[in-house]
Design a protein around this nucleic acid. Structure first.
Length: 437
RNA sequence: GCGGUCAUAGCUCAGUUGGUUAGAGCACAAGAUUGUGAAUCUUGGGGUCGCGGGUUCGAGUCCCGUUGGCCGCCCCA
């Protein structure tokens, strides 16, 4: 047993593990580029105050925070949103609109580990700044959907639950609740799925029993699954805000439908996403079976850039975590096992063969081919087995027979055919093979 | 921060009411095999049985503590 182990909740990526992680990141990155998002990165270590300003002092308990040698209070980043708000805010007036950015980065939270949650994890973050209308939500929800569907997941596997904090606010306002009561009701809504009626305990303690008629309307609102039902419920209230908001809903859903994504979208007002800084549409992606924690979450946060010291700038964003997502891919058999295979494996007999091979090996590598060979003298039989095991497409054979004839034997490891080429043409032959394939 | 549960080789695990030198499969390595691929056979390396203490003539096994994993609660940006 090793004397030292990794810190609790931290992960180590052996090559097999890293290949799986890379597969996920590569596809996320390619998808984001396809949607016209630009990649950025930023420091892992940030001033503690950045997170306190966004989330309140209590957040420190959940952070890897400490005082550095210069006496600065710092924290490992637990999320990207405050950082990207700072980056965008600092250059808001110089950046071309719309600002569509993404990142793939590691985050740290001082928390107890659970299935799909550790103390360090990666997130794909995507945000759009400067666009106040639902066009931004269309773009982001489409990106989120494709970031999951790109791996072969279908509407059988996941869906995106769509809700709206504004709609809740206007609705409860129309029902006659004041702001503190609205917040308490939203807190209950957030917990209702898990706790049922007990979710309203907090409200009752604060304000007394919620009036039965209002509560019935809240519970009915939670059951709504379609835009039509939403419109029917809200039409009677005569609130201008609600009318305007419903127009946004129609635009958002129509846009997603036109992209062919309606099958992934579920109108579900049970999603509230904490009570933190969201100011409009909020959405979360879940596995359909409901066995895992959320795959992704996001929403609109129009006030945050300004709150963190930038200009007033509307924003929408979401993040996908790597842990739950990897679990889902494994569950559905969609996580391919990758091996790092060379293009070419050299089979070498004797010192003279080795010298001849080395010249070609280095030339091929310099030309960008992946080339491997046995470091020590090994029986030919084993070398061929090693060549096959390596996953290489070609074997180059440098044995006494070939040297005597001044050739290199090239074996196609896929169809098991072989032919000889003059020594000085071996590099060109390999190049031709791969450029043709 | 709280609760449940587990910890034996790189991995998956066996190990009897406590008994003397802790095992298997897989993986890895060497050989059979210095000219051709998933086979077979032989052999080998690798363990302070998570760590510390206790009970006992004797502890992988029983007791206490501790660390860590997993699962859940709180929280979830």
């Amino acid at each position: 047993m090793a004397t030292f182990q990794s810190l609790p909740g931290f992960r180590e990526f052996y090559p097999d593990d890293l290949s799986r992680r890379k597969h996920i990141f590569d596809l996320w990155r390619r998808t984001a580029h396809a949607f016209g998002f630009a990649e950025y990165d930023a420091p892992v270590l940030e001033p503690l105050e950045l997170y306190k300003a966004k989330s309140g002092d209590e957040i420190e308990a959940q952070l890897f925070s400490f005082t550095d040698k210069g006496g600065r209070e710092v924290a490992l980043r637990p999320e990207m949103t405050p950082t990207v708000c700072r980056l965008v805010g600092a250059r808001a007036s110089a950046l071309k609109r719309p600002i569509k950015w993404f990142s793939i980065a590691e985050f740290y939270r001082y928390e107890r580990m659970q299935k799909g949650r550790g103390r360090c994890f990666f997130q794909f973050n995507a945000d759009i700044f400067g666009e106040p209308g639902p066009e931004a939500e269309i773009e982001l929800i489409a990106l989120l959907t494709q970031c999951l569907a790109a791996f072969g997941l279908t509407e059988q596997d996941f869906h995106v639950r769509l809700s709206d904090r504004n709609l809740w606010f206007y609705y409860l306002e129309a029902l006659g609740l004041d702001e503190p009561r609205i917040r308490a009701v939203l807190g209950a809504v957030d917990r209702f799925e898990k706790y049922g009626d007990d979710a309203f305990k907090g409200y009752t303690e604060q304000f007394g029993e919620l009036e039965a008629g209002v509560k019935a309307k809240v519970l009915a609102f939670l059951q709504i699954k379609t835009l039509a039902a939403l419109e029917a419920t809200l039409a009677t209230l005569g609130s201008e805000k609600l009318v305007a908001r419903l127009a946004d809903w129609r635009k958002l859903l129509a846009g997603l439908e036109a992209m062919g994504l309606a099958r992934f979208i579920a109108v579900d007002l049970g999603v509230v996403r904490g009570l933190a800084y969201y100011t409009g549409f909020v959405f979360e992606a879940f596995d359909r079976k409901g066995e895992l924690r959320a795959l992704a979450g996001g929403g609109r946060y129009d006030d945050l850039v300004e709150k963190l010291g930038g200009p007033a700038l509307p924003a929408v964003g979401f993040a996908i975590g790597d842990m739950t997502f990897a679990l889902l891919l494994e569950q559905r058999g969609l996580m391919p096992a990758f091996v790092q295979a060379p293009d070419v494996y050299c089979v070498i007999g004797g010192e003279a063969g080795r010298r001849a091979a080395f010249a070609d090996i280095h030339a091929l590598r310099a030309a960008g081919h992946r080339v491997d060979y046995p470091m020590k003298e090994v029986a030919f039989g084993k070398q061929f087995k090693a060549a096959a095991d390596s996953g290489a497409k070609l074997a180059l054979i440098y044995g006494d027979d070939e040297l005597a004839k001044g050739v290199v034997k090239i074996r196609d490891l896929t169809d098991r055919t072989e032919h000889e080429v003059p020594r000085d043409q071996a590099v060109a032959a390999v190049r031709d093979f791969f450029s043709a394939g």
